[in-house]
Write a protein that binds this DNA or RNA. Structure first.
Length: 289
DNA sequence: CACTTGACCTGTCCGC
DNA sequence: TGCGGACAGGTCAAGT
């Protein structure tokens, strides 16, 4: 799904469009996509929107919050005139909304409609009492630092990665308790930027490599946001636009293509059963024993 | 305890 | 063209 950059793009868009509006109706087309009593939210005002890791929060009159996780294939798309203004509809948008992947439909007080589409049905929306949010042992309260916030530093990165000294660097970066918001695309990209082979054990990293990886994570995520996110298959912004980041990626989904830095052939491997891309020339492998 | 694999779903793409 | 298998942006639970 959307990783941090994609969810951030959605957040910024929803902030502009939703704050101050009331929720007129919530229609649930797939029961498992929505947890909680949707009637509680009807007629109430949207007051605040935030993102933590890859989770979106839409606060309602400061008492409830709609938590949204898009997982692998979730989309939040506005319908209505604004979608097509000045733009070409993306391929996904050729199908009118709702389509067969639509799981939940939000109707807002200004008649605009927000669709939650999710081909694979892994994503979820939960309506939760805000007071219960903080004291739960929910994973939201067990997340690692936000990489684009001031709380993040190379020392924190080092400390948290070292919770798993024997695991490959890239696998550990995907652990949301270690760092928030990194997913499979940006993990491969950050390792490339830091010239670290994703298979290297955390314990092999030097302080200089932690510093470089720290900068590389931030650069990869910011570049993702700059280019509107990654749209391998599903991601579109709420306006229906695809992201262009993968046109600028160094390794992700570029197997057998020449490295943009050294022209060596990019390899695709499996790490913890996830597709992983690297340049074996730029990224040095340490076989540690 | 640390780490890996399977499950959750649907759709697409690739090789035979 | 058809069919089976692998694979896809994430996260848990169960298994080793």
């Amino acid at each position: 799904m959307p990783e941090l950059p994609e969810v951030e793009i959605i957040k910024v868009s929803l902030e502009k469009k939703l704050i101050g509006l009331n929720i007129a109706d919530i229609e649930i087309l797939n029961k498992n996509s929505f947890q909680g009593n949707q009637h509680i939210a009807k007629g109430k005002k949207i007051t605040k929107i935030w993102r933590k890791a890859k989770v979106l929060g839409i606060e309602i009159e400061n008492t409830y919050v709609l938590l949204i996780h898009l997982k692998m294939s979730g989309q939040l798309i506005f319908s209505g005139k604004s979608v097509f203004i000045g733009g070409h509809p993306t391929q996904d948008m050729f199908k009118t909304l709702p389509n067969k992947s639509t799981r939940v439909i939000f109707t807002l007080s200004n008649q605009s409609i927000l669709y939650f589409n999710d081909q694979r049905k892994f994503g979820w929306i939960k309506l939760v009492d805000l007071r219960k949010l903080n004291d739960s042992k929910d994973f939201l309260n067990n997340l690692g630092p936000e990489p684009l916030s001031k709380e993040f530093s190379w020392q924190i990165l080092k400390k948290n990665l070292l919770k798993h000294p024997n695991m490959p660097v890239k696998v550990t970066m995907l652990d949301q308790k270690v760092i928030s918001g990194i997913g499979n695309i940006y993990a491969s990209e950050a390792c490339f930027l830091a010239k670290i082979d994703p298979r290297n054990k955390v314990s092999t990293l030097t302080d200089n490599q932690y510093k470089l990886l720290y900068k590389s994570i931030i650069l990869a995520l910011k570049t993702g946001i700059k280019y509107g996110g990654s749209s391998k298959v599903h991601f579109v912004s709420p306006e229906g636009k695809k992201g262009l980041f993968l046109n600028h990626a160094f390794v992700y989904s570029r197997d057998n293509l020449p490295c943009k830095v050294c022209s060596h052939k990019i390899e695709k491997i499996k790490l913890a059963s996830r597709g992983t891309y690297l340049c074996p020339n730029c990224q040095k492998l340490y076989n540690s024993f």
